[in-house]
Design a protein around this nucleic acid. Structure first.
Length: 638
DNA sequence: GTTAGGG
DNA sequence: CCCTAAC
């Protein structure tokens, strides 16, 4: 019996025992371990054993979390353990309600967090649009209590998934994006039909919790992954993605299917257990390597405690726009980590009290599924990730707003009408970046009853082999030092990249350490990004603009071909289009091909600028001639 | 780098 | 126009 099964069983017991899905986070009672703690511990052992088999967790993967823990404002600051896999916990919780087992296991680590477990269980059970608030939500109101509780987990060897949401809740001294909105501002631009609600109440990342089909992935979110663990012997998804997108999602379907579906059909589970591979789902920690920070006027505002951060949103109760630039390099670094999706805005306060100040510290892509052969190079890994991210962003993004865990879809509502006002609990306000998507995505999202519309690009002909979820606007990137989590792992590998990068793009933000968490892209990467971004609305790869041949060009082409014949396109190009940089010999060859075709079809079937029939006749003649000629040559040669 | 063809 | 196999 695998650890997960056991855990599941335990979870079931817990649920049975306490059917009331209370979300409160009461301090665990030493006496309240009616549930077989031993069993739980046993499960935990098994679990851990499995992990170790997988190769002990790479601390790097968790450092980020731990660093987060170091954030003085972080509720989890109590967590001294670098090994604590908060991250993974996040992944579990955040990603799937079905990760319940894991979460529970995590909580059971010390054998005395039954209540915690219950809470978690409840959470999992509540998997539904309205998704109850996670235990940590309560943290908002009662921090001290939580802290006490957290203390108990101080020594937890591994995950502490339950609490990770607290990170979300952590205050950041240097919240990045500050948006000043008038209470009457409207939620314009948001039109989403996804019945997913986001968590809020300081559990910015929680929303991601609950993917019905995520069960099979629970194992994947586990930290017990070594570098190679992330890898799966499959070809680069990126390529597929790119190709797929480029070809309008018409290809790749078949091959991608395996990869993609693995997400939902349990393909991964077995693998996980096989210990040969461990797929790790890149969850909200993924830092998108795309630069998007210029979305707004960046005004580095940093105000420590003045802002109440919740769900990735900073709210300044005082309505004070002054900033204390307490931004230490480390902080900035965090920002960088999220560079791509980070949005910063600091609008000037115009109407004082009527403005709600929001600071969106960042947006994250909760989930990015990457599969790449172990033998792939770091460079290819980077590209793959980039492609994946690009694919996610490729369809465009839109912003979603959630309040109290519910999506606010009515764009016409004013902030105040929606309940977003100075005195409201902005803690429950959340932002998400969502794919601007295709119906299928929406459907998936709805189906998953995720808080956050998780769009999963399943292997439908429509989408490439990548699974992604909404980009959840939220929490802080962790502070520097120990930073290195999954996202980091994947994205921030510039140092070892074979490609000539490492050129810090933004020297201004030189807190190079930020690199820990931030993907510092090299020039080539940027270039790539640039290109991709440019074309992301159309195809991933920039497609040359269509330039119909003019009659004159056709004339020149025909003339050249009459002289040189077909099969010497380079010469034709040189001869007739030497000065036309945009006409490659391939273009000419293609044009000839179409001309021949055009000449053969009836006039009414022709489109575009009409080519004189006379010219077409010459095309046919030349074509026939050269065909004949070639044949003759061929036969002669033979 | 070119060609030839399918997409 | 793109993408690629085959030269």
């Amino acid at each position: 019996m695998c650890a997960f099964d056991l855990l599941a069983t335990i979870a079931g017991k817990l649920l049975q025992e306490k059917g009331n899905p209370t979300m409160t986070t009461d301090t665990p009672s030493e006496n309240d371990h009616s549930v077989s703690v031993k069993e739980c511990q046993k499960a935990n052992k098994l679990y851990k054993a499995e992990l170790s088999d997988e190769g002990s967790c790479d601390n790097k993967c968790f450092s980020l979390l731990s660093s987060q823990a170091n954030n003085p404002n972080c509720h989890l600051s109590e967590f001294p353990h670098p090994e604590i896999d908060v991250y993974s916990g996040i992944a579990s919780i955040v990603t799937s309600s079905n990760s319940l087992e894991r979460v529970i296991a995590d909580k059971l680590v010390d054998g005395k967090s039954r209540d915690e477990m219950e809470n978690i269980t409840s959470n999992a059970k509540l998997d539904s649009p309205g998704y109850a608030e996670i235990s940590c939500c309560k943290l908002d109101g009662d921090t001290s209590e939580v802290k006490d509780e957290l203390h108990k987990f101080q020594n937890m060897p591994i995950e502490s998934g339950t609490k990770m949401c607290c990170f979300e809740d952590s205050l950041d001294e240097n919240p990045p994006a500050l948006i000043n909105l008038d209470d009457n501002a409207k939620l314009s631009g948001y039109n989403d039909g996804i019945p997913c609600s986001s968590f809020s109440k300081g559990c910015g990342n929680v929303p991601v919790v609950s993917r019905d089909d995520d069960e099979n992935f629970s194992g994947c979110s586990h930290p017990s992954t070594k570098t190679k663990s992330f890898i799966r012997p499959i070809t680069s998804i990126g390529d597929r993605v790119r190709k797929t997108l480029a070809s309008k999602y018409s290809k790749v379907t078949q091959e991608s299917k395996v990869d993609i579906h693995s997400n939902s059909d349990g393909d991964f589970k077995p693998t996980y257990h096989s210990k040969k591979y461990c797929y790790k789902r890149q969850r909200s920690q993924m830092n998108i390597p795309l630069k998007k920070r210029k979305l707004f006027n960046c005004s580095s505002v940093s105000n420590s405690n003045r802002f109440i951060r919740s769900g990735g949103i900073y709210y300044s109760p005082e309505n004070d726009s002054r900033n204390t630039s307490g931004s230490s390099p480390g902080r900035m670094r965090k920002d960088r980590a999220i560079e791509s999706l980070e949005a910063r805005q600091h609008s000037t306060l115009q109407c004082g009290s009527s403005h709600v100040k929001l600071r969106i510290r960042s947006f994250r892509v909760p989930e990015l599924f990457i599969e790449i052969p172990e033998t792939a190079t770091i460079g290819s890994l980077k590209r793959t990730v980039l492609d994946a991210v690009t694919a996610v962003l490729g369809s465009g993004l839109r912003v979603g707003v959630s309040l109290q865990g519910k999506k606010v879809r009515d764009d016409s509502k004013t902030l105040s009408q929606a309940g977003i006002s100075l005195d409201s609990h902005l803690g429950s306000l959340g932002f998400t970046l969502e794919p601007n998507s295709s119906p299928s995505l929406l459907h998936l999202c709805a189906t998953h009853s995720s808080h956050v519309p998780s769009a999963e690009i399943c292997q439908s002909p429509i989408r490439p082999a990548i699974i992604h979820q909404m980009v959840q606007g939220s929490f802080d990137m962790l502070p520097d030092h120990k930073v290195t989590n999954l996202g980091n792992f994947i994205v921030n590998d510039h140092d070892s990249t074979p490609s000539p990068m490492n050129t810090s793009v933004d020297k201004g933000r030189a807190d190079s350490k930020a690199l820990d968490t931030v993907p510092e892209m090299g020039e080539d990467e940027l270039a790539m990004v640039s290109v991709l971004q440019k074309s992301k609305r159309s195809e991933i790869v920039q497609r040359r603009i269509r330039r119909p041949f003019s009659v004159e060009e056709v004339e020149a082409l025909v003339h050249a071909v009459e002289k040189l014949g077909t099969g010497r396109w380079r010469d034709v190009k040189t001869r007739a289009f030497g000065n036309a940089k945009h006409r490659t010999y391939v273009d000419l060859k293609d044009k000839w091909k179409t001309l021949v075709h055009t000449a053969r079809i009836s006039p009414h079937q022709r489109r575009g600028e009409q080519v004189p029939q006379q010219l077409l006749n010459r095309v046919l003649i030349a074509h026939a001639y050269w065909s004949q000629h070639q044949n003759q040559e061929t036969s002669t040669a033979l």
